[in-house]
């Protein structure tokens, strides 16, 4: 089953809503609590990234009995140096975003840490598609 969520960068106060909604779906499906926790944290990080770096986008979650896949696609600026972005503590977040408590530079490293598989496709000026997979 597929669940789609729009992430609207113009409404940063709603950031986190997709993660919370999908979390509720996972609870209803009876997914193991520890896996839900990992998915929530990773998806929340991604959702926040889409808001502060990429002007929003779309999250598509696919659930089957073996795996959960979370695809976060945006048409933002893209990531020029992916290795750097994967480094803990490195951030390009604006001062404004940091004042809101974002931009600690743990987003990408945490997503990798909490997922079983992470795949990033990014092109400067075109956008980024981040795929996270979690085994059930």
């Amino acid at each position: 089953m597929i669940f789609k969520y729009q992430v609207d960068a113009a409404a940063p106060e709603l950031a986190g809503r997709a993660s919370t909604e999908f979390k509720s779906v996972l609870k209803q499906l009876g997914v193991n609590a520890k896996i839900i926790r990992k998915i929530s944290i990773a998806m929340y990080e991604g959702e926040i990234n889409m808001v502060i770096h990429a002007n929003g986008g779309e999250i598509t979650c696919t659930v089957d009995e073996k795996q959960i896949e979370v695809v976060m696609a945006d048409s933002g600026p893209g990531i020029p140096d992916l290795d750097l972005a994967m480094t803990a503590g490195w951030s390009t977040a604006s001062q404004e975003a940091r004042e809101l408590g974002f931009g600690a530079g743990m987003g990408m490293p945490n997503m990798k840490r909490f997922s079983d598989e992470m795949d990033v496709k990014t092109k400067v000026g075109v956008g980024t598609t981040l795929t996270l997979r979690f085994n059930l």
């Binding site: 089953m1 509720s24 609870k27 209803q28 499906l29 009876g30 659930v63 009995e65």
Partner: peptide, 15 residues
């Protein structure tokens, strides 16, 4: 919160 102990069933209920 779980809709059914069987995930297929839970997905069907959800749909």
């Amino acid at each position: 919160l779980q809709l059914s102990s069987n995930m297929q069933d839970a997905l069907r209920i959800m749909k």
